[in-house]
Design a protein around this nucleic acid. Sequence first.
DNA 1: TGCCAGGCCGAAA
DNA 2: TTTCGGCATGGC
Length: 302
Amino acid sequence: MKKTSYLSSCGKTEDGADFVVLSDVPYFSASQTFDCGQCFRFNAKDGGVEGVAFGRFIRIEQDGTNIKLIGVSEKEYEDIFAAFLGLDEDYESIRSDIGEHFGAYDDIIYEAMNVADGIRILRQEPWEALASFIISQNNNIPRIKKIIENISAGLGEAFVGFDGKTHYAFPTAEAIIKAGETGLAPFKMGFRTRYLLDAAKKYIDGEVDFARVESSCASDAEKELMQICGVGKKVADCTLLFGFHKLEFFPVDVWIKRVLEKYYPNGIDLGALGAYAGVAQQYLFYHERYIAAKSGGKEDEK
DNA sequence: TGCCAGGCCGAAA
DNA sequence: TTTCGGCATGGC
């Protein structure tokens, strides 16, 4: 049975921070969900995961299927963070659908679903997802995170989190445009700077219309985003998957190319992977990186 | 030190 | 239409 609210209690900490407690949440791991390269603003800290989303600083503490969200009120949980964390999706049936579509090719999907069984696709803000994946191209995750933190601190709106410290929202497109090429130079984004500027301009003037992206069919949504200079198929697909929560998109990056060559040597029909191909993509991506990390960062010979 | 990174652009074939 | 060099920068 589909269950979308796991809220069991809420209240305030000794320091006066709002919190909510969720219980019996299946298929959710905060560490996996925030360590699979879909989101760049959260980090593991003191046994939990912390970061900024929707202009708020939140902390996630997890003990098995019980989760505590600190810095989140009951209303914010219902309005924003249940969806942000993907807790409004039924992963039991999603996983079953993935098995039906990928299992016919190779059993690797079951291994990946097992290793990465706590990943949920987040529902991030579309502009932030677009900008983040523009920055991600031909770049490594630690540096992507660093650049995003730096532009947030430099151009994002400051606010005080429940921990009493100053945090920064992701910069708006207006702030990016206002900074211009000169203002963006200190962040050392290299050739990505003009891509980010083009995205901000086209987003603000409506040339790329997010409402149209939202309501379009898959190929039209992709085309709409690819009008931006610096947005190819991969960046568009990541934006659609992680920012617009279109779970059918299956972004193919260097890691996934490797996975496809390794486990699906006879090819796979990328156009018929089902409504949740993007979730499967994250399972496979996480699994492959997990293997690489275990073998000392070196891949097996092909 | 050199290779590579959640790619894309633009020119050449 | 496909292929391929170049791109800014820094993590490892």
